[in-house]
Nucleic acid binder design. Structure first.
Lengths: 337, 337
DNA sequence: TTTATTCACGGAAACGATTCCGCAACGGGG
DNA sequence: CCCCGTTGCGGAATCGTTTCCGTGAATAAA
């Protein structure tokens, strides 16, 4: 669509197409004088190489794909921020795909990216994903892939995660320290390693406090916020002894707040709440929410950096390059006195 | 990069490349029997057309570009959600670019998209943008463009906005009705029409209440949240009579909250606050924030729908197709009693 | 039977950039 | 003076699809 192409430049300069191309790519075979002439006219006419012709010939697109469950989510939007920054610095473009937490969409998206459209993929898998078969094709095609936050353990590639087991343990431990004895655990991605790690942290903290694990205290949430709230409320009303809620994602912490309001349980007097969250205004909630804050921006940045290191140096991505960043426990009033 | 291409398919089937291509595109010139054979083998071998070869030949990329100031923002991430949904339904891909509210980045991005990489553009301009010259090229190239929310009036194309003047008026009027007499106005995009419209609503509401406009009550915020807060706090401490804050974007409403806390002004007793916001948990803040809620998801969806109508039918986008959606005033405790 | 038309397909030219190969001209060394 | 290497550039193939044009055979129309 760009009005001017190589052939037109070549004609105007009375040079061949190949010479013009080489001049623009700063090839050593072209004299300084010619280079200057070519580049001058190119900028004058506003020449921009056709990206598709270039990609076709070079067999690379200077584009990466980012697959995430949701974008209207503080964690993922911060991560995208980090990703986009690194991509732009390297002159790459970013294609965004949303799975809406469904496995089917994740499959189709991954499939559609296995045709050379992107040079690499960053992915945080959907809550439904249990099978990693759809990632096999990427491996087969040698398409560099980095998982972040919600990873697939089975796939042998690099993964950027946070200390999920530890965070789960510390969150639960904090509730216990504040006096909780019957702690609800709200989880979304319970099939995923991330969910299981946080859960194991929860379980181990209970065990270390010599508290039994009660299966009924476990709520597996879904994408529907109203339903999650109703679910939590129901449990709160059934079980008057519940005095703590550990939410493994932000939206479920919110569900916890709403459910407590509806069930007439005061936070933190009756029920203390802690949740994973990247909400910058967690301190302005009523009451301020105690959070485990993941370094979302850094996660995106690290994942992208790892990917580009592989892309630019044309090296494979190794599982050994995986990184685990630390989350931060920020104590506020929702778990206070 | 996809392992199998048309030529290989053709050889395997003992057909010509053109026949295979036509069979896969369901051309009327190909017999049903051949079509079936071709499609069977194609799916068996997992054939996927090379998107770049296809784009090069067809002169269209089945990709749209979305340019926004920030993604870590409830409004924009909801809008992207709407955009992505419509794009996926139409089989299009979405390239995301962030300007980080800077004019320079907006220029470079727009320039880089004027080479056929995308078939259309959805844009919400940066807070710094005052000049529309960089959009001229898009018009020149006939690259369909739709503005949403933060629009450029000078550019003759369709724009999806909300009733900004009205919202500004209603927000201010609400504060007046609740007894405010000295209302601070926090704005971000004061050069943009969106900022000016909201401001005019503010001014007209003051005028209709026979209140004078005081220039010192106007704060032009920037991208730095801490600085904005400090700015608001300073003004609050200087002027003890301020009893209302009207924030034209969510982040500035938050700055208002923080500033009030720091300056020891109670909300809503001393100062009442209203702000544009798409925060789903505005009701969980302390106190719950009275908001003007924009239909962010719908805006994204409408903008994308308009763009695709033009793309698919190959029609130009007319300014007359512009749409103005209604925002909603949600009264909560931050402007109460 | 002859001609016209449709059907089903093949060949080859695009799309625009990159790159392999080849080739003049020129300069320096023997 | 001749040979050879270097410098600077042109021609053409190539990436994988799409599509224009052509063509043989079968069928229909006359």
């Amino acid at each position: 669509m760009s009005s001017v192409n190589l052939k037109q430049l070549a004609q105007a300069l009375d040079l061949s197409v190949s010479t013009v191309s080489r001049a623009l790519n700063d090839s050593y075979e072209i004299s300084a004088a010619t280079k200057e002439k070519v580049q001058l006219l190119a900028t004058q006419l506003g020449y921009q190489p056709n990206p598709y012709a270039s990609s076709l010939r070079r067999q690379q697109s200077r584009t990466i794909g980012v697959i995430i469950p949701e974008v209207a989510n503080n964690f993922f939007s911060l991560a995208i921020n980090g990703i986009e920054e690194v991509a732009r610095q390297n002159g790459y473009h970013v294609l965004i795909y949303l799975t809406h937490e469904t496995f089917a969409q994740e499959q189709t998206i991954v499939q559609h990216l296995a045709n050379g459209r992107v040079d690499g993929i960053l992915i945080s898998v959907s809550g439904e994903t249990q099978d990693a078969a759809h990632f096999a094709k990427l491996r087969e095609l040698n398409l560099p892939t980095v998982f972040f936050d919600r990873v697939c353990e089975e796939v042998a590639t690099a993964k950027i995660t946070t200390d999920d087991y530890d965070s789960g343990y510390r969150a639960t431990r904090h509730l216990l320290d504040m006096g909780c004895r019957r702690i609800m655990h709200l989880t979304l991605a319970h099939h995923l390693s991330i969910g299981q790690k946080r859960m194991r942290g929860y379980l181990d903290a209970l065990r270390d406090a010599d508290l039994p694990f009660d299966d009924t205290l476990l709520i597996r949430g879904g994408p529907n916020a109203a339903q999650n709230t109703a679910h939590v409320r129901q449990l709160l009303e059934q079980d008057a002894h519940i005095d703590g809620i550990f939410a493994s994602v932000e939206s479920l912490a919110i569900a916890g707040y709403r459910a407590c309001h509806q069930a007439g349980r005061r936070i933190p007097n009756d029920v203390k709440i802690i949740g994973f969250s990247n909400l910058e205004m967690a301190d302005l909630l009523d009451p301020p929410l105690t959070t485990i804050r993941q370094p979302a921006y850094a996660i995106g940045k690290e994942a992208a950096t790892l990917l580009f290191r592989a892309l630019l140096k044309n090296q494979p991505i190794l599982a050994s390059q995986s990184l685990e960043l630390k989350s931060e426990l920020v104590v506020r009033a929702s778990t206070g006195g």
